[in-house]
Every structure is written in C-alpha cells, then in structure tokens.
Simulated assay, not measured.
Amino acid sequence: MRIDLITKEYPPFIYGGAGVHVAELVRVLRKQIDVKVHCFGEDRNETDTFAYRHSAEFEAVNGALQTMATDLSMVSAIAGADLVHSHTWYANFAGQVAGTLHGIPHLITAHSLEPLRPWKEQQLGGGYRLSSWVERTAYEGATGIIAVSDGMRQDILRAYPQLDPQKVAVVHNGIDLDAFQAADNPDLVRANGVNPDQRSVVFVGRITMQKGLPYLLKAARELPADVQLVICAGAPDTPQILQEVTDLVAELRKVRDNVIWVEKHLSRAELIAMLSAATVFACPSIYEPLGIVNLEAMACGTPVVATATGGIPEVVAHNETGLLVPIEQLMDGSGKPLDEGKFVADFAAALNEMLDHPKIAEFGAAGRRRVEQHFSWDSIAAETIGVYEKAINGKHIG
C-alpha cells in the first residue's frame, strides 16, 4: 500500500495543530506502510518527502491562487499511489485533482472548516471565497473524510448537508506520549519570564478569533492576585486582533503585575516545561475541532479548563481531567458567545474553582491516564490504516 500525503505544514516548518498531526501520523504510519509526503515550502532532507513552491509568475497574486498553483505542481508526482490523503484546504485542491487524474481514492482529514471561520473574509476577501470553494468542491468529490472528533463530524455534516454521512469517519488526533510528559525544568521556565514557584494559568495558541484569547484576558481580572497569567501567543491572524489583544494585556497589567506574554514560538522543550509548571491550562476557544494543545497539557499532568465546544468535550473529561465551561454560541458560523459577559464570568469561575480544588493533583494524574488510554499515535495510525483499506476497496468509511 502506497499512500501519498499532502500537507502545507511539515517539519521543521510547523505553526499549528494540523502540522503536528501530520508529522506524528507520518512518523508512525511509515513503520507499517509506504508513505510519500508532498508539502509546501523549503526542501526537506527526508526520504520520500518532497517540497513544492509556486512559480515566479504567481509571486504577486492572491495567496489563495499561490496555494492552488503550488497544489497543481504536486499532482504529476502522485502517479502510482494507491490513495492520496490531503490535510486542510491548502492541500485539498491537489488531492482532488490528483485523485481525479490518476483514478485513485482521495481521502481528506478535516482539521477545520472554512464556513466556520467567516471572519477570514474580512481578512482575505476573495482569497477566502476561493478557499471556501476549494474546500467545498473537495469535500463533495472526495472518496471519504476523516473528522478529528465526533463534534467535527457533526460540523462537517451541518456545513455540507449534501454529503453522505457514510463517507465521514472519526479518527481522533493523538499525542506523542514519550515526548510529552511532565518535566521539571525551572530554569527553562524562568528564562521565559515565569516564576515556577508561583501558581500560574497558562494559555498556548495562535492569536486568532477561534482561540478566544480576549475572553481569557477579560476573565483573568478575577484571578487571585498571586496567580500568574502566562500567555504563550503569537502568529496573529490580523493586525486588528493583535491590537485587541495588546490593548487587553495593557489594561490587565494596570491591575496585575504578573501577566507574562511570551510572543515567540516555543520549542518543544520550552512548551513541555511551561505546561508542566502550570497550575492550570486554559483553553477559551470558541471553535476547536479537537484541540491538540489540551492533549499536550494533559500528557504533562496539568488539569485543563476549557470551553465545552467542538471536539473539546471528547478530550477533556469534565470533573475528571478538568472543567468544561458551557457556552451558548451564535449560529452564524462565527461561534461567538451569545452572552459574552456570562461566558467570561463562567470561565473565570471555573479557573478559580480549579486553582483552589482540593483534588487538583488528581485531575492532573487523570489527564495523563486519559491520553495514554485513548490518544496514542499507535492506535490512531492503526485506525487510519483501516480507513485507507476501506477507501481503497470501495467501502463506506463512516
């Protein structure tokens, strides 16, 4: 079995959860089957891994067109594969064209959905309309779709109601259990401006509307005075959301002197050190198909307070590995809370409850057990190969 996997992100150039997913999945799949990777950007020094860039004539055009041009440059090389597997809309166009040209199944892993990120139209204009067209066309034409959570599967079927539910399967994201485990590294924590000897609430994520960082910054006004708020956040989607976060941090620092904003991209060692030192990990997302970062925190033995949305409730077990904060959301695709004040207050209350919970250590230990039992990459790779076999043999995958 030869699988050709298409992705925008691939090591060493990873900036989001989809890239982490692809890197870990390929690592484990290659122990069992033949996998060729087609990715964007700089050449990689890895066997059976090929990188592509758009040609010079596309340098000054819309970014979505550059993506499509890069996709087309991959298609010929996929000849001979038994199945092509694409990740995110950036790769879906290449997957659909390759599948059609070469007469092979095209499988998509859905990490997010363009209809559920409508704010991107303000950012990208026609580029968002193109990305939405690419995604919809690929989903409609694909042999099958893997959702990274049951919540994501439901979102796919709502966003694209014409799809046959039998071609949408669920295979969760995973976690590298050897790499992600509690590590006491106080010097590395201090090097990032955090006092490892004091309590902390830690956030890790990109500065984008879906990650909900502004809600956390508002909720943090209610944290105990001794608790550090540590924001490991960069890669803003737009200047506007960066300005909003900057203003909220400035306002919070007027009443708290222990707000630490780490803007750089953390190395894996730094991330593990920060998660291990955290008292509570905060995930205020308003859109999250699964949330790998919650798995990473739980693997490090840190309890999680997270929004009860998307696939998060399939990761964080309420009152066992953390606390889930309820949210009523607008149904316009934005996911914004219907009552922002209530959501912020509820999130603050959950953080404070967890910070002072008499059994907080048990929550952390339960989180580690949960990821070991349900989210190992070995089990997820086995499930994925099972989906490949069904797709290649013309069977329903869902």
Rank of each mutant, 00 (worst) to 15 (best):
R2K: 15
I3N: 04
L5A: 01
I6H: 12
Y10P: 09
Y10C: 10
F13W: 00
Y15F: 08
G17V: 08
G19N: 06
V20S: 00
H21V: 04
V22E: 06
E24A: 09
R27E: 11
V37W: 12
N45T: 14
N45P: 10
A51W: 08
Y52I: 05
R53F: 08
A56Y: 06
E59R: 12
E59N: 13
A64N: 11
L65V: 15
L65F: 07
T67C: 06
T67I: 01
T67Y: 07
A69I: 06
T70M: 13
T70P: 13
M74H: 11
A81W: 10
L83I: 08
H87M: 02
W89Q: 14
Y90S: 11
N92H: 09
G95Q: 09
V97Y: 06
A98Y: 03
A98S: 14
G99L: 09
G103L: 02
I104W: 04
P105G: 01
P118T: 11
G125S: 00
G126A: 01
Y128Q: 15
Y128H: 15
S131M: 13
S132I: 12
S132V: 13
W133F: 13
E135K: 12
T137I: 00
G141M: 03
A142S: 15
T143P: 12
I146K: 03
V148T: 12
G151I: 02
M152S: 11
M152P: 07
A159K: 07
Q162C: 06
P165E: 11
Q166R: 15
G174I: 06
I175S: 03
P186F: 00
Q198R: 15
R199A: 15
V202C: 01
V204L: 13
R206L: 07
T208E: 15
M209V: 12
Q210H: 09
K211I: 04
R221I: 09
P224S: 10
A225E: 14
I231K: 06
A233N: 07
A235H: 10
V245R: 01
L248N: 08
A250E: 12
R256V: 01
I260Y: 01
K264E: 04
S267I: 02
S267A: 03
L275G: 04
A282D: 03
C283I: 05
P284C: 07
S285K: 05
I286H: 07
L295I: 00
A297V: 02
V305W: 01
G310W: 03
G310K: 03
H318Y: 02
N319H: 12
E320R: 08
T321W: 02
P326V: 01
I327C: 05
L330W: 07
L330T: 11
D332K: 04
S334Q: 00
G341T: 13
D346G: 02
D346P: 08
F347R: 03
A349N: 10
A349F: 00
N352E: 03
L355F: 03
K359G: 08
G364E: 04
R369N: 13
V371R: 06
H374P: 07
W377R: 03
A382W: 04
E383F: 03
T384K: 07
V387G: 00
K390D: 10
N393H: 14
G394V: 15
G394S: 12
H396M: 00
